[in-house]
Simulated assay, not measured.
Amino acid sequence: MGSTALIVIDMLSTYEHEDADALVRSVRKALPGIGTLLEHARGAGAPVVYVNDNFGRWRSHLGEILEAALAGRHGDLVEPIAPDDQALFVVKARHSVFYETPLAYLLGQLDVQRVVLCGQVTEQCVLYSALDAHIRHLDVVVAVDAVAHIDAGLADVALRMMESNMSAQLRPSREITFEGATAG
């Protein structure tokens, strides 16, 4: 049996988009759950992979994206969940963390069979990432208190879809364990 990886989706953000105000309210509620997951995963030695949009900046890298996010309007949302020195980082340009990224290969190299998804946006990037994980035969867990949304109604529907159509387990962060994890 493979290990479990925590996938942190799009949390390094400057929040400079039209839906930012609605998202920020939800992110504030999700931060404690994300912090709990990071603590549990790091404590177990599980791989923690930040997968983040590059915002169309094609020469960007983790340091640049993190710096911009910390200096942005809501750096206070980024600072408590910023990557540590052990975190892995993958840049994405579209909604799914898997679409045209090396994430599937990376997870294979780490012998990951189960992914725990957290981050933003539930009804967009989290949903599409859960689907892509499912079609790659990965076990999917979504931390319901560690995902943020723009539209609460769509987020609820997206979570139900992940559970019924993708066999995702929906769990609060405090109930998610990372036993059997191996650091990569």
Rank of each mutant, 00 (worst) to 15 (best):
A87W: 14
F89P: 11
F89R: 07
V90M: 10
V90E: 13
V91F: 06
A93W: 11
A93S: 08
E100I: 02
P102A: 01
Y105H: 10
Y105R: 11
L106M: 14
L106Q: 11
L107W: 15
Q109V: 03
L110A: 13
D111F: 08
V112K: 04
V112Q: 07
Q113I: 00
Q113D: 13
Q113A: 06
Q113T: 06
Q113H: 14
R114F: 03
V115P: 07
V116Y: 12
C118L: 03
G119M: 05
G119L: 06
Q120I: 04
V121E: 05
T122P: 11
T122G: 04
T122V: 06
T122F: 14
E123Q: 12
Q124T: 07
V126T: 09
V126K: 08
L127V: 06
L127P: 01
Y128G: 01
Y128S: 03
S129N: 05
L131H: 15
A133I: 04
H134D: 05
H137W: 05
V140S: 06
V142R: 10
A146Y: 09
V147F: 15
V147D: 09
A148W: 15
I150Q: 06
D151L: 00
D151Q: 01
A152W: 08
V157L: 11
V157Q: 10
L159F: 10
L159T: 06
R160Q: 07
M161N: 13
M161P: 12
M162L: 07
M162V: 04
N165S: 05
N165E: 05
M166I: 00
Q169H: 03
R171M: 11
S173H: 11
R174D: 13
E175D: 12
I176D: 00
I176C: 10
T177M: 02
T177H: 13
T177L: 08
G180N: 10
A181I: 01
T182F: 13
